[in-house]
Nucleic acid binder design. Structure first.
Lengths: 147, 147
DNA sequence: GGTGTTACTATCAAATTGAAACTAACGGTA
DNA sequence: TACCGTTAGTTTCAATTTGATAGTAACACC
């Protein structure tokens, strides 16, 4: 598509898609949330070609979702850690997962539990103001005037 | 990537990405939620090449997020409507939008309001069981045993 | 008969992706 | 010293996908 272009659009969804509109990036973020940090961990987990992985990690780093940290000077080795922006992407991943569970749910599935209560997590999106679930009420879309 | 392959993976995120792991599909779904139904509406809204649009609409239809409906016999004309699965994708779009608003939020942005209360919608993902916001508590991931 | 609308398909160059092999910089072992 | 293994990539190149442009089919309207 066109990453730079999207960032000037008024739609916040389009802006996010400048980098997240590709499956590899989302899977890398998923694995990063699962605790992976290193090149070869991602490569083995995803079965991704190293060229792709190099590029995706670079993009995610440039976009501020991951940060590179040197964990060894000799030999020089880097690992990739989630930034605050990267961590805040978790709700998106969970909602994507919920949809997948509901509509592509056959067979064995990974499951997520609240480590404190032990209950299985069921992610839902709500409007923080009204408390209503997203999609249960009519929405009014307001587009900014052209300047 | 590889759509078919992902559908056998145990991760519900990976399964969703079999079709949603591409920016055009998500933007088409966004526009469908905004009320667009016809080929040329999508084409003009997105500036997408017709070849791409044909393919993406076909995939989304096959995957069960859109359905084709004939709205004119002479000449034969089809429109694309959201299915239940397509409508249930709205929370994903909202969470993507929230992230974009937070981290790519400069300049003019489209805004969403609750049509009943008139308040601006702020989408957050919560665990329906505990009520806690996703990302605020430790998570335990349980992978199914290999069969 | 001519123009406009809608929903495409055809063609083809350019960009992206994926697979495989290779490299650099070490550390450990024999 | 020679050799192997690990990690984080790069190089190369074929195959696929994409994007832009033009064309088509089936009408409606004037």
């Amino acid at each position: 598509m066109n990453g730079e272009n999207n960032c000037n659009e008024p739609c916040p969804i389009a802006r996010s898609l400048a980098f997240a509109g590709d499956a590899w990036s989302l899977l890398i973020l998923r694995d990063a949330h699962a605790g992976l940090t290193r090149f070869d961990q991602f490569r083995k987990s995803l079965g991704i070609a190293p060229t792709m992985l190099t590029r995706r990690l670079a993009t995610l780093t440039e976009e501020g979702l991951l940060e590179k940290r040197r964990y060894s000077e000799h030999p020089p080795r880097e690992e990739y850690l989630l930034t605050a922006a990267g961590r805040d992407f978790l709700p998106v991943l969970f909602m994507i997962g919920e949809w997948g569970r509901q509509y592509r749910g056959g067979g064995k599935l990974v499951r997520f539990f609240d480590a404190e209560t032990g209950t299985e997590i069921k992610a839902v999106a709500v409007d923080e103001v009204t408390g209503a679930r997203i999609g249960t009420r009519p929405i009014r879309i307001v587009t900014p005037e052209e300047s």
